[in-house]
Design a protein around this nucleic acid. Sequence first.
DNA 1: CTGAAAGCGCTTACAG
DNA 2: CTGAAAGCGCTTACAG
Lengths: 337, 337
Amino acid sequence: MKHPKKKRVTLQEVAKHAGVSTATASLVVRNNPRISDKTRKTVMNSMKELGYVYDRVAANLRSQSSNTVGVIITDISNKFISEFLVGVHETLEEVGYTVLLGTSFDSLAKQDHLLSTMLEHRVGGLILDPVSGSNAETVNRLNQMNTPMVLAVRELPEVKSDYVGINYRKGSLMATKHLIDKGHKRIAFLGGVRTSSTWIERMDGYQYAHDNAGLIIDNNLVVDSPPTREGGLEAVLQVLRNPDPPTAIFCFNDLVAFGVMQGLRMEGFNPGQDIDIVGFDNIPESDVYHPPLTTVSSFPRQTGVEAAKLLLQQLSDDSHEQQRLILEPELIVRESA
Amino acid sequence: MKHPKKKRVTLQEVAKHAGVSTATASLVVRNNPRISDKTRKTVMNSMKELGYVYDRVAANLRSQSSNTVGVIITDISNKFISEFLVGVHETLEEVGYTVLLGTSFDSLAKQDHLLSTMLEHRVGGLILDPVSGSNAETVNRLNQMNTPMVLAVRELPEVKSDYVGINYRKGSLMATKHLIDKGHKRIAFLGGVRTSSTWIERMDGYQYAHDNAGLIIDNNLVVDSPPTREGGLEAVLQVLRNPDPPTAIFCFNDLVAFGVMQGLRMEGFNPGQDIDIVGFDNIPESDVYHPPLTTVSSFPRQTGVEAAKLLLQQLSDDSHEQQRLILEPELIVRESA
DNA sequence: CTGAAAGCGCTTACAG
DNA sequence: CTGAAAGCGCTTACAG
């Protein structure tokens, strides 16, 4: 874990080489205007000549500041999350922050460990996409350290914090209503983890759309599963064993929808013709899938941008009021429903 | 960019609270065995009571060591890269390293800037997925700082460094040969940036397969494009305008293949029936696409794992010899060819 | 506009 | 097994 290096050139050496004091050299590296142009040039030359590299770690230690931000996510390979990260990165790097990234692989223990590590690394703030089982205690350590935090993607009950997420309920409502408007009365809801806030909110919208139309949900048509293609495949096979199968399917996300379509084909159905399908997320593949998937667009990149912006606000403003930002989704109608 | 915090509890305060010297407290946090169990417990209790958080930054500064690793990638939203990152992360976090992640968004200027930032942050080592235009100079600064580095995914000519990548040439050879064996004589090669090492190597394999079979390449059938779905779409539309169109298509990667299939459908062809398609990468979607895509599997996650391992080797072994690790791809035959 | 000295929170020899 | 003092590479008042 340790790795001593060849000695770095220090600011002191630069100062000596340039014939000024260390304090002056320090002011030069930080572009302080009260240094004369002449001195500045001399020092800059010495820096170049000696191959000086600024030691941000030492500087941050002394000035008790930080220009790193910790970001903890559950799974990079999830397309929603990786797009989210793009948004976070472009916003944070733009203003000179460096990102410490940790992946919890959906393990609470790993998440706890990463939180500790980030605090030990003196991050200026933190963006957290929490694992499902996260509780208030997990997160309170941050408040104790007085480290600004933004929660993203998944909301945590009982945790007071800035939050950026999608209006899953509304998205789910739109998707379900679209299917009802097409005349469907038996609409399955497949995939997703029943205990997660993201599932519960979708269930809410699905329920509400039914209520509005005076329709009753057949609980046999609601099957949870991991939010993956494999999960969707299993869920649809289970629901098809039903004596009275659904005529349309609302899927937890697009990956689940792909699995569902695969399962339908295996069972001899023609997705989009025999059975209508709606997904959620609008991942790039949904557009080129066969048939193109009707889905709810959920703006992962913008979610990342907003999360980063909220954090930057906290970082620059101590009297920052707690904010909750919910991005509105959009229904993208294609051929699958 | 700065954000002064509420004062942290220091090791000194812990030591005073526990009635020992700072040195002793320091040995306790680092689990040094030469501290008696009794003292250790007292100190641990004080730490808990005061809410002490270890300051790794100060520790690293003093001991001239580092437990961070910089990772610079071109684009997180690329599936190959995000899977690669998963491999890097799981390997590095396992042994206690923290990842500083930077995204160059394929810009040389941004990459240069990120390199500087990482060095300023005293990273122990670096994994770099270089942007196309990177030159030796870009990278030599690292050598000057004596910072261990591993190049990944794209190789850089004239740069001496550990490298982990895929045998693109072999993969391309297998894909092309598969099409030739199926009786095709006019095989297009679509997509990818002509100047990138990854394109050149694929071209090489494509060429070699033709040579072996005594076939001649029609240069009108070789169309480059961005390595995206949109790129594939445009490339296939262009190649179809050919008076003598291809009977099979080898695509730069799976995304390109998806765009190609979309274009074929637009033009009234039935991909996998009228025209055979082979992709490259074996992204998860290739399996569930319709028709399922014949493609070359390129093990992005393992590439990440190996890159991290090589870096760890360098970090723990000064006399480390330069290594070049090329992962062998695999042809996955599905229904599209 | 510039310099000498103290200090950020740790670790590292060196004593005992 | 434990302690007092110096130092990692910077920045920060304070003088001048």
